[in-house]
């Protein structure tokens, strides 16, 4: 029988080894995780929580406009864009000192948006108005409006910035939009209440989640046909509770993460076989997700448990949950 001391010593040793391995990984990573900041919008608190990615401690709670939801960062990570839905504007924050730099017009009730890969313009879904509004982030001017279906929400953009995909929740469509002509080129019917559109890194497919339909449609971007409908079954969880929302795909294009809403799970999907590898238990009503800059970690916002879950991408394990504000909605991490 081992003594209590040696019983403690073994995990300590393992921990030391893990720390060493972790350090080695950090040195190898292009954007070291310890430098990252995680921004989370809290819809019901009208605030944005800024976390240190290493300690997972709150660095600051920033007061935002009312009902902050969609959240994204400029390509250089220096600017943070926030949809203040009830104030009908987009707010631009300095990622360093969290000061409000300026506000952009957004059209009514902005919910989600996507930045052109170059950082300009910003494409905003106006949920109450069946419009996509295009805003020049430099001049702060509205440069276009595209009529789409009822309750536009999900916004995805191709890696080359030439194709924008917007989903409209009540119309149940993914609208493919040519960003040069600002015209719809195709409307693809998907399942009920599409929430998020995400391009695969090779730009060949768009993944669209349908919250009420309970599926993810994979659309071939060339033919605009739905080539695969991914369904989810979780033992012990009612089908009605499985409501896919957020989608994130690793840069290598091999693995997708799908947030399943009130099922309180994130599904890990093989993007080639569409096989579901694993379901990770996270917080309640998980909606949106974001990778850390080095893609080692995935953060999820859990709207009903007021926390975020931290998922280690390599080991596919939930490592921690961290309390933020009420109704966490959007998340983005910058170096």
């Amino acid at each position: 029988m081992k003594s209590p001391i040696s019983r403690r010593a073994v995990p300590a040793l393992a921990k030391a080894a893990a720390v060493f391995a972790g350090l080695a990984a950090l040195i190898a990573a292009p954007a070291p995780a310890w430098a990252a900041k995680v921004f989370v919008t809290n819809e019901r608190d009208h605030t944005m929580t800024v976390l240190d990615s290493e300690s997972l401690k709150t660095l600051q709670t920033v007061k935002t406009g009312r009902r902050p939801r969609g959240l994204t960062a400029s390509p250089d990570g220096k600017l943070i864009y926030v949809c203040a839905s009830d104030d009908n504007r987009v707010e631009v924050y300095d990622a360093n000192d969290y000061k409000l730099l300026r506000t952009l017009p957004s059209g009514p009730d902005p919910e989600l948006f996507v930045l052109h890969p170059s950082g300009n313009p910003l494409y905003i879904a106006n949920e109450d108005d069946a419009l996509v509004t295009i805003v020049d982030t430099e001049t702060g001017k509205v440069v276009g409006e595209i009529p789409v279906g009822v309750e536009p929400e999900g916004m995805g953009i191709s890696p080359d910035g030439k194709t924008l995909v917007n989903t409209s929740e009540t119309t149940s469509m993914a609208h493919f939009i040519d960003t040069t002509t600002k015209q719809i080129v195709e409307n693809v019917l998907v399942d009920s209440r599409p929430r998020v559109a995400q391009f695969t890194p090779d730009a060949k497919f768009t993944w669209v989640s349908a919250e009420v339909g309970g599926t993810v449609s994979v659309i071939d971007n060339a033919s605009h046909e739905v080539v695969k409908k991914i369904t989810f079954q979780i033992p012990g969880v009612n089908d009605e509770a499985i409501q896919p929302v957020g989608i994130r795909i690793t840069k290598d294009g091999n693995t997708a993460f799908v947030a399943l809403g009130p099922a309180n799970r994130v599904a890990i999907v093989d993007t080639h076989t569409y096989e579901i590898k694993k379901y990770l238990l996270v917080g309640q009503r998980v909606w949106q997700m974001a990778f850390s800059p080095d893609e080692s970690v995935l953060y999820t916002t859990n709207g009903n448990s007021n926390d975020i879950s931290v998922i280690d991408v390599a080991s596919q394990k939930v490592t921690k949950s961290v309390t933020v504000g009420r109704g966490p909605w959007g998340v983005v991490a910058v170096p």
Binding site: Q183, I184, E186
Partner: peptide, 13 residues
């Protein structure tokens, strides 16, 4: 009435 479809007619319509 809902917004008109801008641009070319969608091919599935």
């Amino acid at each position: 009435p809902g917004p008109q479809v801008p641009g070319p007619a969608a091919k599935n319509a």
